[in-house]
Simulated assay, not measured.
Amino acid sequence: MSYAIVGFGAVGQALAHAFARNNIEVAVASRRPPEALAPQARAIGTTVVAKSLRDALDADTIILAVPFGEHREVARALPSWQGKTIIDATNAFGVLPEELDGLPSSAFVAKSFAGAKLVKGFNHLVAAILAADPVVEGGHRVVFMSGDDEDAITPVASLAKQLGFAPIKLGKLDGGGALVHARGRTWGALIFKDLFKKEQ
């Protein structure tokens, strides 16, 4: 399985730290050329490789870490998304529900990536927490995930575990997934819940 992070701002870099910490190779890309990203990528870790957007999209699993309004621009970079898994780490905070055709934000994003399997995940942790070791205070930081394709959620949950997080599946995007989707200027009910401890 190959991975890429599209978007190399605070969230994209935080996710790159998580991959580097676990020695998992990941491509990183943004609108900037790869040579502009390369010094920061190398500083994060040797498994973080700056690539052009087009080359990064050769990955099997792509984490979308761009501002919400830029997802269409990323989607136009490939003629077909068949066979790809998109992990939507964006947040539509401040976007009016009517601008999303009444859909959960990730269902709206999915329309631009026709043929791909889409899973909402890694969107509710602020960058500083996402970049830090998720094993803390005797527990694990949580990654909530939701999607309309169960076959896609399972490997994303496995990736979250590899990165040290505790994955929690919330079901379909319009059900449990709504608990972590921003709606207008309101955050989902679980958006700032992030620590899981097993009972002794």
Rank of each mutant, 00 (worst) to 15 (best):
S146R: 08
A110M: 02
L100K: 09
G115V: 02
A107Y: 00
M145Y: 14
G115R: 10
K120N: 09
V119G: 03
G139Y: 10
V135K: 15
D148N: 15
S146C: 15
D148G: 09
A110Y: 01
A116G: 05
P104Y: 01
G102P: 14
K111S: 07
E137D: 15
D133W: 06
V109S: 12
P134C: 04
P104W: 01
N91S: 05
A128D: 15
E99V: 00
A127G: 11
G102N: 09
F113C: 06
N91V: 07
L118M: 12
V143E: 07
V126I: 13
G138I: 13
M145S: 11
A116Q: 06
A131K: 02
L96S: 13
G115H: 10
S105I: 01
K111Y: 00
D148F: 05
S112F: 08
S105G: 11
G115L: 08
A128T: 09
S146G: 11
A131C: 10
A131Q: 02
F93W: 13
G102I: 00
V136K: 08
A107W: 01
F144T: 02
A110N: 06
F93G: 08
V136S: 07
V135C: 05
F122V: 10
V142Q: 06
F122E: 00
P134D: 06
R141S: 13
D101S: 08
D148S: 08
A127P: 15
D148A: 04
G121C: 09
G121S: 11
A107E: 14
K120I: 02
V109G: 09
P134Q: 11
S112D: 14
V95H: 10
K111H: 12
A92T: 04
A92Y: 09
F113L: 10
P134V: 09
N123H: 06
S106W: 03
L130C: 06
A110H: 06
G139H: 11
P97E: 07
S106G: 14
P97H: 10
A114N: 11
F93S: 06
L118F: 08
K111V: 09
F113I: 01
S106T: 15
K111C: 04
L96I: 09
A89K: 05
V109T: 10
F144E: 03
S105W: 05
L125T: 11
G102M: 02
H140E: 12
N123F: 12
D148E: 11
D101R: 01
G102Q: 06
E99Q: 15
A89E: 04
L130Q: 12
S112E: 09
V126K: 12
D101L: 10
L96P: 09
A132L: 04
V136H: 08
G138P: 03
V142M: 14
V136G: 00
N91P: 00
H124W: 04
H140W: 00
N91Q: 10
L103M: 15
L103Y: 03
G121T: 05
D149Q: 14
V95R: 12
G121L: 07
H124S: 15
G115A: 07
A114H: 11
D149G: 03
L130W: 10
D133H: 08
A92C: 12
P134G: 08
D149M: 02
R141P: 11
E137P: 00
D148T: 08
E99C: 07
S105A: 15
V135G: 00
S106R: 02
D133T: 14
L130I: 07
A110C: 00
A131S: 10
V95I: 15
G139W: 07
G147L: 07
D149I: 12
F108T: 04
V142Y: 04
